[in-house]
């Protein structure tokens, strides 16, 4: 009899302890989830301030001129972000154009075309490339890629500002997103059903025809996920880009050998004070960046659904 009573008590206590643990674990979960909301709320608050007369009086920035303006100078407080958005999209698009084919072919090579040892070796190479911090790519960009771009410019009899240019930025971004796209493509390609490929071979297709017409087609959804991740990374990449972008005050600039300015480089360049209009306007640029990332993500995901309809 006594024993049953104790177990009942223990059971009850266990139940309470369980409830307490559950709540104790829910707290950090809610905290972790709250950061996204904190980002939205507080960056909006700071980013809206430059447009309010109550905050900056006569200095306050005209929202329309901010959104549609094509000039950005810190000293007379001229802030126009439109050309920066266009330049950002331009470099991100071209870096993707360079990185995507290289990444997909590399992934094919690693996943399908070589012996296990070589494949493992190349996989590690790509993983290490993915692990290199962006600041190191910035140093590499400024020390090496600028020289490469200078030589390319000389071929076309063009001048660059010491190699700092749109093209340099594009190359640096392409190098940085290549590992991301490659790694996700490898996973997607390896997940393709073997019998699908064998059936293609059995129909008399060559190995290459099979890889391009069946394997890649079946893996396209996963590859596209890699592209979305890569484009997201290049949109948000800041330090390396700001080191090689130059500091174009006007635009938009589509000349590959001219300097450029991206949203992120604008946020980092010439940062000195931690208060005032010049500081707060960077939060406004941050809002634009977040909105741009969300819009592009939605568009790409929509495109992914469209192209993925057979798989």
């Amino acid at each position: 009899m006594g024993l049953t009573v104790t177990t009942k008590k223990i059971k009850q206590r266990n139940k309470i302890v369980d409830k307490i643990t559950q709540i104790a674990l829910l707290m950090p979960t809610i905290l972790a989830a709250s950061f996204v909301l904190l980002i939205i709320i507080f960056i909006s608050e700071r980013g809206v301030a430059p447009f309010l007369e109550s905050q900056y009086g006569d200095l306050s920035v005209d929202l329309i001129r901010f959104l549609l303006g094509n000039e950005w100078y810190i000293s007379p407080n001229v802030y126009g972000v439109f050309f920066i958005i266009i330049n950002t999209l331009y470099v991100v698009f071209l870096s993707a154009v360079i990185a995507i084919p290289i990444s997909i072919l590399t992934a094919l090579f690693i996943a399908k075309m070589t012996s296990k040892t070589i494949s493992n070796f190349f996989q590690i190479v790509i993983e290490l490339l993915a692990a290199i911090p962006s600041i190191v790519f910035g140093v590499f960009g400024l020390g090496v890629i600028t020289n490469v771009v200078k030589k390319i410019a000389a071929l076309f009899q063009m001048q660059t500002a010491g190699g700092i240019s749109t093209l340099t930025t594009i190359f640096v971004l392409a190098i940085m997103i290549m590992p991301t796209i490659t790694l996700l493509s490898i996973t997607a390609i390896k997940a393709v059903r073997k019998d699908l490929e064998q059936n293609s071979l059995a129909l008399g297709a060559t190995k290459m025809q099979t890889l391009f017409k069946i394997t890649l087609v079946d893996a396209k959804s996963g590859i596209f996920a890699g592209i979305i991740l890569g484009v997201g990374r290049s949109l948000g990449e800041a330090t390396a880009v700001s080191m090689v972008a130059g500091n174009a005050g006007t635009g938009p600039n589509f000349n590959l050998f001219g300097t450029t300015r991206t949203l992120t480089s604008t946020m980092l360049l010439g940062i000195k004070e931690t208060t005032g209009l010049d500081y707060d306007i960077r939060f406004s640029v941050g809002i634009i960046l977040v909105v741009l990332i969300i819009v592009i993500n939605l568009l790409l995901n929509f495109a992914k659904k469209k192209i993925g309809r057979f798989s």
């Binding site: 972790a32 997201g232 949109l235 990449e237 992120t264 960046l289």
Partner: peptide, 20 residues
């Protein structure tokens, strides 16, 4: 909400640090 954190670029986290 937690998954969304993965897609936020680090410079935006920097703004969070500065503002909060």
């Amino acid at each position: 909400l937690i998954e969304m954190l993965t897609g936020v670029p680090s410079i935006i986290f920097g703004l969070l640090g500065a503002a909060v």
